[in-house]
Write a protein that binds this DNA or RNA. Structure first.
Lengths: 218, 218
DNA sequence: ATAAAGTTTTAGGTTTGTCTAAATTTAAAT
DNA sequence: ATTTAAATTTAGACAAACCTAAAACTTTAT
């Protein structure tokens, strides 16, 4: 598996949200920041290798082998992110690019030992689940903050947008995973939210609310 | 810098032992396990980029930029080796191939933080010095065990051959870096050595003796 | 000093992953 | 039901890094 092949598998997995949906050539091209014609070339190759199901003009989906390879890369990516934050004091907005490189290192022993060093973490620094060796992971029942109603209460468990800008915004406003969030009021006019986060009052725009995941507690 | 370019710089550095000697195309080809014609191609490219001094038929040497890049890769390689042994419980014969991949990860911050995590090690698991950020490292005054005379005493500080076979042999015989070695007798006939290692008697072949570095203490 | 041997370079070809431009297929709109 | 628009694929090209075979240069040996 080349790095490029791995990146395509990962992209297909992410676009399809892990399901077996048919993914369009254009969607992959956009995600990979490449051209549709390049995607077509690669799909032929991955199809040859039985990693994707591909029929001309009909989109692609991962085969079970392709899916388990994608999960293995995602596992590596997320474990490395935890390592960077926990052991090397990176902040959560700095880890992505480095993990993007580290995820391609080939060594099963390395990943097993890293997993152990980190004490078998279940989630990465952005709240995304880390698949185990067999590709299994718990999907926790989370909702976007924007879907909550007034008086709903929950724990902040993840971010949808994990861009550096958004993460830095959260840092600046002292919003972190694990925080307890309560919806005090919702403004119909602009979709903004009045919140209580860890006992402090907050007002966040709908943009923010639709990029924060919470686990409802009551 | 591509991985391949980095590997060539490293190879040239290793062949020339860090000096400014003129390195032959064939020597590089052998080290890189590739063909001389491929080396020529790459030397032209590296020369274009001012990383090597290259004149047709005359061999190459690293420019100062090329040398500092080679040192940076070696620094990364050796730091990762320490990480694998110290933090992930790899044994010293298992680290090379993985470090060979990890050395190409691009992130200054990653290496700075790794260096810190490991508490700024000066030597890798095979006793080779780790260059600092500026490419400086101490060359300790070591000799091959085979150069010692009867009654010489020293500390085992490194290996010349760091192949898995040799390292496993040392493990099996409980010879490790830091051990105190005394030459009891030398057999002229086959060049074998009678040693005392950490108070135990040992007999090693000339092959072994010429692949172990010791620092003489008296 | 010259032939033989060894080394290095050139010339031309391959694979991988990308691209642009043109052709084809599918989907949408009237 | 056609036409138009959008998505996708094909065709042909390019750079990187490698290869083989042949040519050119150096070195060695007589």
């Amino acid at each position: 598996m080349t790095h490029s092949e791995e990146n395509y598998l990962k992209a297909i997995f992410h676009i399809g949200k892990g399901g077996a949906n048919e993914i369009s050539t254009n969607a992959i091209a956009e995600q990979m920041e490449t051209k549709p014609s390049s995607v077509t070339d690669m799909m032929k190759k991955l199809s040859e290798k039985n990693l994707v199901n591909y029929k001309k003009y009909k989109g692609v989906s991962l085969t079970s082998i392709g899916k388990s390879m994608a999960l293995s890369i995602i596992r590596k990516h997320r474990l490395w992110e935890v390592f960077l934050v926990e052991k090397l004091d990176f902040s959560w907005d700095e880890v992505h690019d480095v993990a993007e490189q580290l995820e391609h290192i080939e060594s099963e022993k390395l990943i097993d030992k890293l997993d152990k060093l980190l004490d078998y973490p279940k989630y990465d620094p952005h709240g995304d689940p880390i698949p185990d060796k067999n590709g299994n992971f718990k999907v926790i029942d989370k909702k976007l903050l924007s879907e909550l109603s007034v008086n709903d209460k929950g724990i902040c468990v993840g971010v949808k947008d994990s861009s550096s800008q958004f993460l830095k915004f959260l840092d600046k406003n002292k919003i972190a995973l694990g925080d307890i969030i309560e919806v005090i009021d919702k403004e119909d006019f602009d979709g903004s939210f009045q919140l209580k986060i860890n006992a402090n009052s907050f007002n966040v725009s709908s943009q923010i609310a639709s990029n924060l995941y919470v686990q409802i507690t009551e």
